Computed example of a mutant assay.
Amino acid sequence: MPNSPFPRCGSVFSSIAMASMLAGCATLPSSGPTERQIRRGAEASSGLIKFAIVPLDAATVDRLRREETTRRTSVATLAQLAQDARTDTIGPGDVLTISIYEVGVALFGGSVTRVAGEGFDPSARSETFPTMVVDREGTIRLPYIGRLGVAGLTPFEVQRLIEQGLKGKSQSPQALVSIRTNIANTVYVSGDVRRPGRLELSLGRERLLDAIAASGGSVGTSEDTLIRFSRNGRIVEQRLGFIRSGTPDDLFLIPGDRVELIRRPRTFDVFGATAKVSQVNFETGEVSLAEALARVGGPNDVQADPAAVFLFRYDGIPDAPDAGPPQVYQLNMLKPESYFVAQRFAMRDRDVIYIANAAANQPAKLVNIINQLFSPLVTARAVTR
């Protein structure tokens, strides 16, 4: 078939393919930049996004571990809020039960009191005031005594005050005082706990983890839970998973403390030439770079450049105004020692891992496009012969 149109079409498509090659490979689809493009970006970076690429080797990991130790010592912890205070004193809002016992001529016409082992004694009388609320000024009012300031006192100390107030008015008065409803000696547990509410403190001295356990525990895992602890106007946040029972961070609670549990998982993001772009939860206390790469399947054999695994990180907290300068660390996985380095490199919340595309991918993609363009022509020729 001398007049077949296919040779002419083939020349047309050849011209298109040549034009595509001349236009360069940069316009082809890609999951991200190559190592060379990232390095060019570092050289051209300026202003707030200026960054440098730091090779991730043993010396770099040692330096970062020392800096992390220093950073942790400078960050406020719950132990810095340690304070001792009594948990048996009376305060505004408390409901007291007060009983007064008298012998002989009584001021209060109450019930006859039984004396143990001696039957009834008609000369002994008692009177109970079951609901005595401490007002906002921290006082109560009793008959024949008047107003008493009880805020900051223990029930035993209030007993002595009542007995002194009745001296000379009653014969051998004795008082018993107990806290029926405790408002002053309480802490508040809220947020992502199973039973939020107010918790009464006892003389047994409850700790922070005791209060959380009494509230049913956190809804999420301890590693994904942040404690926001408020005491006397100061607020400190710390991960629940980092607090061990009986340590200084497991504070003894004092009246007025507020504990809020917030579910805030720590995550890292993975982009580039990997099996799947994803956001991954830490789920455990610490995660190394080696573990992070293993969780996402590592570099893709077809697309990735294993010598160009990058980790993007801010020195501080990414959302804070003083987040610190951005840092980019490069791991060369073609070197055997890099796997030891990756085991010692600790991930941080909000870290970004990027696995660069191999530079050879772009020409390969172009060849695939050309093959797709010419394969119909080759098939048509085979059919028409």
Rank of each mutant, 00 (worst) to 15 (best):
G204A: 15
I53E: 01
L48C: 04
L81R: 00
D121N: 15
A184M: 07
A26C: 10
I100F: 04
S202L: 12
I49Y: 14
R348F: 02
A151W: 07
V134W: 00
D57A: 09
R348E: 01
N232K: 12
R72H: 09
T27R: 11
F252N: 10
Q159M: 15
A23R: 07
A23F: 15
A320V: 08
P5Q: 09
G233D: 06
R313I: 11
P376S: 08
C25Y: 15
R348D: 00
L366E: 06
L261W: 01
P376W: 11
S230I: 13
V54K: 12
G41Y: 07
T274Q: 01
R71S: 13
M18A: 14
T70M: 10
V277A: 04
I53F: 08
T87Q: 04
G109E: 11
K335N: 12
D315C: 04
S99A: 14
P318H: 02
A211W: 10
E137K: 05
G10C: 11
S170T: 15
V115M: 09
A213S: 03
V341I: 05
G138Q: 07
D250C: 03
A382M: 13
I140M: 04
A292Y: 00
F242Y: 05
A380L: 15
F271V: 02
I235L: 14
P155H: 09
P2H: 08
P5C: 08
I162M: 02
A307S: 15
R72L: 12
D88W: 12
T97P: 09
P325Y: 01
M347T: 08
S4L: 09
V341K: 00
L261D: 01
G220E: 04
A82S: 14
F229P: 02
N300D: 15
